[in-house]
Design a protein around this nucleic acid. Structure first.
Length: 869
RNA sequence: GCCCGAGUGGCGAAAUGGUAGACGCAGGGGAUUCAAAAUCCCCCGGUAGCAAUACCGUGUCGGUUCGAGUCCGACCUCGGGCACCA
């Protein structure tokens, strides 16, 4: 809500003392540009620091969430520069992708024009915020110079065997008309379109990321400066499980059926085998069995959407085969096909153990299959009825005449013993399986990096020649701009673009018309920033100096996709000699920041549909929020994610115009810890502006010639030293909110102090330095007014004088039985005995003791005293 | 279903096992002003009390400890991730 507006930029009689962001911010931004403060300079003499925020998609407008994200990076970048580091802090644009094509389809323009216009607009919005970015390294992933290098990487990886082509059942987004990676399917729906995903068989290009499953999992352990949460999410996504492949002999003498199981300890309970409809044995049987063929066809049809699959009924059909139970060969188990068995995981065949798996139990009850316990709970010999018995793996269970000679043990022990036993008997092979699949990179879209291969009838699949790169996207189709008015891939429809000579034999050939998943673009941009104009994907020497990213900052929503792909890509780039080995984990430290939220104001129309109101359309009356025009009372939903449709977005440009960049930067960093969401409130922004104006006034009004008390000078010097330590600790630990609290405290200390003008000036210069990472423009202004040398941006970070950090005396709380009852001030090096004597003299203690001796006296020097009675 | 994480004033939050609520917002009172804005000063977890002070208080219940927001166990609520994965 915009209550009474503060008008910081209005002219006023006391102009000199007033803070006017619209004057000082552009002034200092020019000064930084003239001094070239932010160019990243390769300097072997200095430690380097690479700070990177996840680059934005050029949607058209920057968002207050971007401001928070980039301010965090900027605080780190400015702080590291001040502590003597050579800093790389670049910015670029993740510029390929669907929205540009959608916009083109909607408005008739071209995705390229739309994208570059958005980039220009967003850059214009971003620059007034005063981020210390090296703009000379800027690029967009849709620049042909960038994607030419990406195509080169593709060809090198193809030749290194890291990329291959196969027909696969893929996730098909019917709205975007393209394929999605598993990672891009959320709840059975496309991550961007939200449409239910269908399953189709297409020939696609894949990265062999699954070959790196173990490596990507193992290496997580060493990423000490990543949030545990992200490491755990990646570990779960990779999904390692230990199990065993066991061969079941067919009674008809055919090749054995191999099942994968993580629970071989339940083998006694196996009563049937279930095959995937796509399993070769089922397929072979179906040739002579029309009922089975019909069932398989039906299962595939039913499997059209992932969403439907989740709810689908478990169906099966006996295919008329039996196998011998591997441990008890007398028993013959029927073989079924089951629509719930996945061909892609394990061997596409499982043994059903109804007693210890709810899904198998449901299936067995439905089709009248046997249920047989492999174990009971100790002292409870009841057999399974309606509910499968699946105790936690650590819990002790009682195995029934177990083949591996196991009695009452935990099921984890049972599993391990069973795997060993099957291996020893030669009945099975221990296996490690991973959930992670290969990464399909083909997209049937125009606005992406073309896959640089050509299909030749004579030579087959041929990579494009390096000198022909980039394979550039066509801008025109014949004489007309390329056509986006119909869905599907315009590259497919282009009359000439796809027809090229074969790079090998020169004969007629056609180009691949699929383009790359945009996640490929963002999987190596961080490496490109180290040498953005190199003629090769990277300049290995530059990469070796600047990599790895020392601090990466971005949203938790990229915990799996982008971060896992990038980790794979860094390994692939090492294997193709584009990165040194020490760069295979490209992000040393990761920070996942929270969102900026804002209240939503909602009313309803006559039909009961929600109507949303922008913050400037509502006001507070008598404790309720009402629509200004109509007086209707709004429902207020606090702290909601910003969304255009809910009309609760905050435009950083408006904020910069009203309050200035420093206010926006300070506000988004104050109050909430950076990993948590912060709610934007106008009242908070106004309060921030008032505070900054107060600091400015304090600096303007300080009289350098004023005399003061020596004791006050000393106290102020101590407060300043303390602030240096605390603010620095906060920045180092990503606790910007506590750094800001300490800056408020120092400001209060200066303003209340009766110290001399010289001492206050000294304290204010230090305050300016400490504030500079957060509010760089104001910091420069104060620094200049108070005679600081050069730019505060180039000044070395202040160091606290250790003598000021040591106090002469300490105040100790006195507890009686753990409750605070008083305090005492003692010399900082007072002995335990001296403290004990003083405690006994304390009136509060004497009152409680009433002349008795305490049971116990606990003295923690410098900390606390506790009297136990 | 499985795996994580979080619960502290009216609000955002702080707190190496050692004075719970720093700092900020909102609120209340006062100064200044013809009046307001801006600014400055004071108060601000609850209950009782003029006060000194006492008791209660970090989701709930228990435990460890001289001492627990912090450590351990169980539970409740909210948030996130994964899920026909055999």
């Amino acid at each position: 809500m915009s209550s009474r507006a503060v008008s910081p930029n209005a002219a006023s009689p006391e102009r000199e003392a007033r803070l006017s962001p619209s004057e000082i911010e552009p002034k200092w931004q020019r000064a930084w540009a003239e001094a070239d403060c932010f160019a990243a300079k390769h300097d072997p003499e200095r430690p380097k620091f690479y700070v990177l925020e996840m680059f934005p998609y050029p949607s058209g407008r920057i968002h207050i969430g971007h401001v928070r994200n980039y301010t965090m990076g900027d605080v780190v970048a400015r702080y590291k520069r001040a502590t003597g580091h050579a800093v790389l802090h670049p910015m670029g644009w993740d510029a390929f992708g669907m929205p540009a094509e959608n916009a083109a389809m909607a408005s008739g323009g071209h995705p390229r024009d739309w994208t570059y216009q958005n980039i220009a607009d967003m850059r214009d919005q971003m620059k007034p915020l005063g981020f210390s970015i090296d703009w000379s390294r800027e690029f967009a992933t849709c620049d042909p110079e960038y994607y030419a290098q990406q195509q080169r990487l593709f060809i090198d990886m193809l030749e290194a065997g890291l990329i291959y082509r196969k027909a696969a059942i893929v996730n098909w987004d019917p709205v975007d008309m393209t394929v999605l990676a598993n990672e891009q399917v959320i709840d059975g729906k496309g991550w961007r379109s939200g449409a239910p995903v269908e399953r189709r068989e297409l020939v696609q290009w894949f990265f062999r990321i699954s070959d790196f499953s173990e490596e990507l999992l193992d290496a997580l352990e060493a990423l000490k400066e990543w949030p545990d949460k992200v490491r755990l999410m990646q570990a779960n996504w990779i999904g390692k499980s230990r199990g065993i492949e066991i061969a079941f002999q067919r009674t008809d003498g055919g090749d054995p059926i191999v099942c994968y199981s993580t629970r071989p300890d339940t083998m006694r309970g196996a009563t049937f085998i279930a095959l995937s409809p796509e399993h070769p044995v089922a397929q072979a049987k179906a040739e002579a069995d029309p009922a089975l063929a019909a069932f398989i066809a039906e299962s595939r049809k039913m499997d059209t959407t992932e969403a439907a699959m989740e709810k689908a009924e478990k169906k099966g059909l006996d295919i008329g085969l039996t196998v011998r139970h591997p441990v008890d060969p007398e028993r013959e188990l029927p073989v079924w096909v089951g629509n719930f068995v996945l061909m892609e995981y394990g061997t596409g065949a499982v043994f059903g153990c109804p007693a210890h798996d709810q899904r198998d139990l449901d299936f067995a009850r439905k089709y009248g299959l046997e249920v047989r316990n492999a174990f009971h709970m100790p002292g409870d010999p009841r057999d399974v009825e309606d509910e499968a018995l699946v105790p936690p793996k650590a819990e002790i269970v009682s195995y029934i005449d177990h083949f591996a000679g196991i009695g009452e043990v935990s099921s984890q022990t049972g599993i391990d013993a069973a795997i060993d036993w099957f291996e020893a008997q030669g009945l099975g092979t221990g296996q490690l399986k991973y959930r992670l699949r290969d990464w399909g990179l083909s997209r049937q879209r125009y606005w992406g990096c073309p896959i640089p291969v050509v299909y030749c009838d004579t030579c087959g699949v041929v990579p494009e020649k390096p000198e022909n790169l980039p394979v550039e996207l066509p801008y025109d189709q014949g004489n007309a701009p390329i056509d986006f008015s119909v869905p599907g891939n315009p590259l497919d429809r282009h009359p000439t673009w796809r027809n090229v000579p074969c790079p090998k034999c020169g004969g007629p050939a056609t180009r691949e018309t699929d383009t790359m998943d945009t996640f490929v673009d963002s999987s190596w941009y961080f490496a490109r920033f180290t040498a953005p104009h190199a003629e090769t994907p990277t300049d290995v020497a530059e990469a070796d100096y600047w990599m790895n990213v020392d601090q990466y900052i971005g949203g938790i929503e990229h915990a799996i996709l982008h971060l896992l792909y990038s980790r794979f890509f860094a390994r692939a780039m090492h294997l193709t000699a584009h990165l040194p080995e020490r760069c295979i984990e490209p992000f040393e430290a990761l920070f996942t920041q929270g969102m900026v939220t804002h209240a939503i104001y909602r009313t309803s129309d006559s039909a009961g549909r929600p109507v949303y109101h922008a913050p400037q359309e509502v006001e507070e009356r008598d404790g309720a929020v009402v629509v200004r025009e109509t007086g209707e009372v709004c429902t207020v939903i606090p702290s909601a994610k910003m969304s255009k449709s809910k009309r609760n977005t905050i435009d950083p440009t408006d904020i910069v115009e009203r309050f200035g960049a420093d206010t926006a930067r300070w506000f988004v960093m104050s109050d909430s810890p950076p990993e948590r969401d912060v709610e934007w409130t106008d009242a908070g922004a106004e309060a921030t502006f008032k505070f900054l104006a107060r600091v400015h006034r304090l600096a303007s009004e300080t009289d350098a010639t004023a005399s003061g008390e020596a004791a006050a000078d000393l106290a102020l010097a101590r407060a300043t030293a303390r602030a240096i330590v605390d603010v620095t600790e906060g920045i180092d630990g990503f606790a910007f909110n506590t750094s800001i609290a300490k800056l408020y405290a120092l400001t209060n200390a200066i303003s209340k102090s009766s110290a001399s003008g010289t001492a206050k000036g000294e304290a204010l210069r230090t305050l300016a330095q400490l504030m500079a990472p957060f509010t760089p423009h104001l910091a420069e202004e104060i620094w200049a007014r108070l005679g600081g040398e050069g730019l505060v941006t180039n000044a070395a970070w202040p160091v606290a004088d250790p003598s000021y950090l040591v106090e002469d005396s300490v105040t100790l709380p006195i507890q009686v039985n753990g409750k605070r009852r008083g305090e005492m001030t003692v010399a900082k090096d007072a002995s335990k005995d001296a403290i004990e004597a003083l405690v006994m003299d304390d009136p509060a203690v004497q009152r409680v003791l009433e002349g008795r001796a305490p049971k116990k006296l606990i003295v923690v020097p410098g900390r606390i005293v506790n009297v136990v009675v």
